[in-house]
Write a protein that binds this DNA or RNA. Structure first.
Length: 161
DNA sequence: GCCAACGTTGGC
DNA sequence: GCCAACGTTGGC
């Protein structure tokens, strides 16, 4: 059986919390703390080998800054059960976890960030979720054409198979 | 720091 | 099930 096609994503992080440089140093990281059902559902749709654009939100400027790969498929986010964690959720039960996460691994950091403004200004990225006003989704799917266009704008080495 | 755009919660 | 109040995200 052929594996399903690689899906493509965009994942936001505030660089003050966790940046592309942190991921480059750590190599892999559990993407914990997502507390939005739609974003959680997208993470549960991810498969090992999927690629994601790493995006810096609440940054100056907000920008696509690199590429990461899903290296472990969804499992319960341990921080939901940790009373000391800012992501603790008292309503989540161990036998029925509410929040899930994936592990991501570093693939590459773009030589230059592609700013949100540059993404908005590029007509071939029309319809890309992150460019749309009021889109707060921290984990979102990206069309293959849009993904490849961002890689091209960034002069990236990564290729979509 | 402001605030628009959402998403969630809880009273009814 | 509605919806007002509240909380959060994230660009600016």
């Amino acid at each position: 059986m052929p594996k399903r096609a690689t899906k493509l994503w965009l994942m936001k992080s505030e660089p003050g919390t966790y940046s592309i440089d942190d991921l480059q140093r750590d190599r892999t990281e559990p993407w914990d703390g997502v507390r939005n059902y739609q974003a959680r559902n997208f993470m549960r749709d991810m498969a090992q080998g999927d690629l994601a654009i790493f995006y810096h939100s609440s940054a100056s400027p907000p920008a696509a800054v690199g590429v990461c790969r899903i290296c472990r498929e969804a499992y319960p986010d341990p921080t939901q059960f940790d009373k000391k964690s800012p992501y603790y959720d008292p309503k989540s039960k161990r036998e029925d976890p509410r929040w899930w996460l994936v592990d991501v691994e570093f693939v590459e950091k773009f030589a230059e960030p592609i700013s949100l403004q540059a993404l908005k200004d590029d007509s071939s990225l029309e319809g890309m979720l992150v460019t749309q006003k009021g889109s707060r989704l921290s984990v979102q799917p990206v069309d293959k054409g849009h993904f490849e266009r961002v890689l091209k704008m960034a002069g990236a080495k990564s290729k979509v198979r």
